[in-house]
Amino acid sequence: MNPMLIEAVYGETCPGNVFSITPWGETPPWAYAPEWLISEALKHDVGLRKPGRLTVLLADAPGPHTVHKAAAVEPDDWWEVLRVALYMAKPKPSKSVQLLPFAPATSALAALGQKEACIHAESLTADYLHSLIHALSSSGTERLVLVNPPQFSLWQKLRTSGVTGYSFARHLALPRALQLGALSRSRYNLRENEALGADVPLFKSPVIFREQSLVKYAFGDESELAVALLSELEASGGVMSHRAFMDTASSLGPSSRGIARRLLLYGYVVFRQAQVELTLKGIFALSEVK
């Protein structure tokens, strides 16, 4: 495997011949990534409170690791995670992907597996970039271009251009030569005493995608048993004793006791004072059943 070349550019945009993730990308983003990286991305984007717990729960649930799956197994911050998941689609052939304004770190996961990739990194933190670079390098990416990234040291090439490049160079305390070089490539209208920047691109509005229900992501082929158990709890007024809940699970099949425990872990039901209660997440899951 060749070592990855990392380029940091300030005041420019992505090269035209490289897979790019920008606010005006052609197609919606997708995320098929290691469980730990999805947790890190959601910590960045939605302030996920317990990324370590989500990592463990993702590793336990069936199927590939996606943001939809994260929403299905996250017990507390699932509303916030689902909000991001709604705008994530399946991969499709494309040269550019949209960087969601409210989920830049999660959008950047679409770069995984690309031989060459470019990411608009203004909204990403240095800590997250280090995690992303680790994953990209191990997935076979050979060249990564970061546009306007925060200050970090993992780059082999650095370019500055125009007023934007000059501003970043000064803010990041880059060498004076890079600051002056950026100014030398700026466009000015001296008569009007103004600088001319690049044309503002046409930003795209995010589009909602829904593929399947939360319980399907969390339980896979056993989702019908999970829904049946939630339905039994709902029919009992939304509350059962813990013993009755587990006995009901046993009556549904040999694997249903394990499903009952995972419903507790994933936040579809809650255990309180020897009782099991249906939560808003459980009600939402039942509302998705056709």
Rank of each mutant, 00 (worst) to 15 (best):
P3S: 09
P3H: 11
I6L: 01
V9S: 05
Y10E: 00
Y10N: 02
Y10R: 00
G11Y: 00
P15A: 08
G16E: 11
N17W: 11
V18W: 12
V18C: 07
T22C: 08
T22D: 02
T22N: 02
T22A: 08
T27Q: 11
P28C: 09
A31Q: 03
Y32I: 15
A33W: 03
W36T: 10
I38H: 12
S39I: 13
D45V: 03
V46E: 10
L48K: 01
R49H: 15
K50N: 14
G52C: 11
L54M: 03
L54T: 00
T55Q: 13
L57I: 10
L57H: 04
L58F: 12
A59G: 07
A59L: 08
A59N: 12
A59Q: 08
D60T: 10
A61E: 06
G63T: 04
P64E: 15
V67C: 09
K69P: 09
A70K: 05
A70G: 00
A72C: 10
E74M: 06
P75A: 09
D77V: 01
W79L: 09
W79E: 10
W79V: 10
E80I: 07
E80R: 09
L82F: 06
V84E: 01
Y87G: 14
A89S: 15
P91D: 04
P91N: 04
P93W: 01
L99V: 02
P101Q: 15
F102I: 10
A103R: 08
A103W: 02
P104C: 08
P104F: 09
A111T: 12
G113Q: 00
G113D: 05
Q114L: 11
Q114P: 11
K115L: 11
E116Y: 13
E116K: 10
S123Y: 04
L124Q: 09
T125W: 00
D127R: 14
I133G: 05
A135W: 06
L146Q: 13
L146Y: 09
S153R: 13
L158N: 02
L158T: 08
R159H: 08
T160E: 06
G165S: 01
S167N: 13
F168N: 03
R170P: 11
L172T: 07
L174Y: 14
P175M: 15
A177M: 14
A182W: 05
L183S: 05
R185G: 12
Y188S: 08
N189A: 12
L190S: 15
R191I: 11
E192P: 07
G197C: 05
K204Y: 10
K204M: 15
I208N: 03
E211G: 14
Q212M: 13
K216G: 10
K216S: 15
Y217Q: 02
E222F: 14
S223F: 11
L225F: 14
V227G: 11
V227W: 04
A228W: 01
L230G: 06
H242W: 15
F245Y: 06
M246N: 06
D247Q: 14
G253A: 02
S255P: 06
S256D: 05
S256W: 02
I259E: 03
R261K: 09
L263I: 12
L263D: 01
L264M: 12
G267N: 00
V269A: 11
V269H: 00
V270D: 11
F271G: 13
F271D: 13
R272I: 04
A274P: 14
Q275Y: 12
T279P: 04
T279N: 07
L280D: 14
L280N: 13
K281Y: 13
G282F: 04
G282A: 10
G282Q: 06
A285P: 05
A285V: 07
K290I: 08
